[in-house]
Design a protein around this nucleic acid. Sequence first.
DNA 1: TTTAAAATTTGAACACTGTTCAATAAATTT
DNA 2: AAATTTATTGAACAGTGTTCAAATTTTAAA
Lengths: 196, 196
Amino acid sequence: MVRKKEIHEQRVRGYFIDATKEILKSEGLKSVSVRNIADRAGYSFATLYNYFKDAKELVFHCVEDFRKECLDYATVKAAKQPAGTRHLKALFLAYLEYFVQYPGIYELFFKEALSDIDDNGNTTMLVVSLLPTLCEADWQHIAKQKELSRKEVETSKSALLLGSTGMLSLYLGRRYPSSYASFLKEAENFIDQQLK
Amino acid sequence: MVRKKEIHEQRVRGYFIDATKEILKSEGLKSVSVRNIADRAGYSFATLYNYFKDAKELVFHCVEDFRKECLDYATVKAAKQPAGTRHLKALFLAYLEYFVQYPGIYELFFKEALSDIDDNGNTTMLVVSLLPTLCEADWQHIAKQKELSRKEVETSKSALLLGSTGMLSLYLGRRYPSSYASFLKEAENFIDQQLK
DNA sequence: TTTAAAATTTGAACACTGTTCAATAAATTT
DNA sequence: AAATTTATTGAACAGTGTTCAAATTTTAAA
């Protein structure tokens, strides 16, 4: 009966992961502690170490779930727009909106050090490929319609990833610009410029 | 004799600031602790609280010094290039190089939460204005030579700040791209594209 | 069903962190 | 030299992560 054991293990791991996700969404990374997670999961803090190496490993298990949530959020939000630059722009803005809504998830994706947890770059790929994955179909469409050349698409794709990361870093970390309205305007200016 | 007291106070504050700067440069933000700083400064950890509200306040006093250091570093490094896009590009790459060399200073500038310390956006301005200040003369030159329009200069200026912040976030935080050579190539591509 | 074995859960203990505050030490003034 | 002010300090407390042997629960065997 090795099956039963695995089912139980997966279940308990899920309890810890769910508890961690709750904390990340509501209070942010600073409130994530071994004892805090275990309390929410209904276990002792020591039990956590039977299922995860430490809280960091646990936290990075949330990345996959949040990534999917962000994909869904942006896809739904941009659904009304026609394929191409219009749709791409809507996706881009919804992507930014998601992280502004959940700053704790931004911290997890872009600020939390993963130097310790030997991850083989898996988490990095999940994070870095999120925006490109979201926009892939529209890039195809834009290239097909010859609105931009292949080369231009590549550089724009890269610029969008770098620019969005920079915008979130400055806005969520340094309150620059100081209002959400200014932030949005800057985001629109940026993507309009890059899609020129 | 209020003078003597102030001199002494400034001196001791300097000892703590220097100790903090040493730690930030060598071991990074994770090693900054009240006891660690005080040890290096040659005082008890309790003495720190007589001169600073807490370690965070102390840490942000380092921002000004590092900002100046980065300005000097990039200015010297780009000195050989002729004014304009060539010089601008050299400054941009040196700016990135400085933070790659001292990841602890990058963390301090772009990752450390300043939500707690009510700073009136002073630290934000120091951080955000660094690259624009560095490049100001070259932007003037470029606009004068009509290589780019006023409007184009503004959007490029903004894109450079956002892009550099994003690049450093992804490279230093997520090891993307995985090698420094790739990082440099991406940086060059980005600035060439933005200066089109 | 009772007993033995295996698996799971747990809190004590230790080493770190930040922070406060009363006691000590040093410097200054009287 | 004595009194007063100023500066420095370590003890103490509440957090943090982590380990490990003991206690508990679950499973298997008799």
